[in-house]
Design a protein around this nucleic acid. Structure first.
Length: 385
RNA sequence: CUUGUCAGGAC
């Protein structure tokens, strides 16, 4: 039976609900008697199917076979209703439990609290928390985290903080979940300094900060267009032995590019390569566009050469950035040779780049050159629009 | 071997 239960649970987790019933039938056929675990797993299967009537039918059948729903069964049902936002039904189950002599436990309360939080009823969740404590339950880390998360999602950070302290005072050390929830709360409100201070405080309490929190913060700072702040955090945590990831480097480089700090961006790119990460097309695109925008097209071109050496193929955005860059700098020969290069080597025919080059020739009154260009391009199979 | 802590799911 335990083997079957294990299998059923696996099927449930991989969302193969139909298979569950096949297994259940098969069990009957070969004479394996289901136990409470079996029924509880199947209850979950039905809950996920989303048919309330079927659940009731099944519970009756369970009853016929001599199994009374236990606290796990009820908690499963409560959770299912909570996830669907049907809080009335969830509380109804909670009342039924008492009536049937199955008293709710910590899990029941936590589940209900989470359901209330999800519907934005955090205040009521907190009241339920108090009621639970008054009934003699000792909240555990999950109970605290659920409520803290509810407050954080509403941006009620002062309440979250006071729960955090309540939690620590009751002898529970916050974990990675707690940390992550609170940090996300601050970041969503744009309060990065509070987030950083919280990390310091948690460290002082002896909480291990999960490394991906730093990653998250750095990326969030980048997306807020604060690459310098992101970089200084990055440097600080690198000293703690935190290994910078490909994603973090990419994000930092992109952010500095957007900030027109081409120097810092390219330093980071070199550092990234040294650490064994290969910048991708998006990163090169950002770098090249940034250099071109700042009138440093020659450097942009050598970046493109790096990129090609590393096995990446330039796209039309890169082509456009370079051609426009050289046009703006007045180096039309270079622009033209690049246009040829992209067409010949990469079969990249970017009409927009082509047009801007023609336009520059025409603006200079050099119509002859413009026609010569068209001849050359036609020979390469590059047709104007 | 079964229930609770970001999300738990798409036009």
């Amino acid at each position: 039976v335990t083997v079957c239960n294990c299998l059923l649970n696996g099927l449930l987790k991989s969302n193969q609900l139909d298979c569950c019933w096949e297994i259940y039938d098969e069990m009957g056929r070969i004479g394996i008697f289901p136990n409470t675990y079996t029924f509880n797993i199947l209850t979950r299967v039905l809950c996920r199917d989303g048919d309330a009537n079927k659940v009731n039918v099944f519970l009756e059948k369970m009853d016929e076979e001599g199994f009374d729903p236990d606290v796990v069964t009820y908690n499963t049902l409560i959770d299912s209703y909570c996830r669907k936002g049907r809080m009335d039904d969830a509380f109804y189950m909670y009342k039924i439990m008492y009536r049937r002599g199955v008293p709710p436990d910590l899990v029941s309360y936590t589940t209900l609290m989470k359901g209330l939080c999800k519907g934005g009823r955090v205040k009521e969740a907190h009241q339920l928390f108090h009621r639970m404590v008054n009934r003699g339950f000792i909240p555990d880390i999950i109970a605290f985290n659920s409520l803290i998360s509810g407050y954080c999602r509403q941006g009620k950070m002062q309440e979250s903080r006071s729960l955090l302290h309540e939690m620590i005072q009751s002898g529970i050390l916050p974990d990675g979940f707690t940390c992550r929830t609170l940090i996300e709360g601050y970041v969503n409100g744009g309060r990065f300094l509070y987030a950083l201070n919280l990390i310091m405080e948690l460290k002082r309490w002896g909480v291990l900060i999960p490394p991906d929190i730093y990653c998250y913060l750095i990326m969030a700072l980048c997306q807020e267009n604060r690459p310098n702040a992101a970089l200084s955090l990055f440097r600080r945590v690198s000293q703690d032995g935190y290994n910078p990831s490909f994603e973090v480097y990419s994000e930092l480089i992109g952010s500095f590019c957007k900030y027109d700090n081409s120097l810092q961006a390219s330093l980071l790119k070199d550092e990234m390569v040294c650490k064994g990460h290969k910048p991708d097309l998006v990163t090169y695109r950002a770098l090249i566009a940034c250099f071109c925008r700042l009138g440093k097209s020659a450097e942009a071109e050598s970046l493109m050469d790096n990129m090609v050496d590393s096995g990446l193929v330039p796209d039309s955005l890169i082509c456009r950035a370079l051609i426009n860059g050289f046009c703006k700098e007045g180096d039309l020969d270079k622009a033209e040779s690049l246009l040829t290069y992209f067409a010949e080597v990469f079969h990249l025919y970017d009409t927009e780049s082509y047009n801007s080059l023609i336009q520059v020739f025409c603006e200079k009154g050099d119509v002859t050159k413009s026609f010569e260009l068209q001849d050359k391009m036609l020979k390469l199979g590059f047709v104007p629009n």
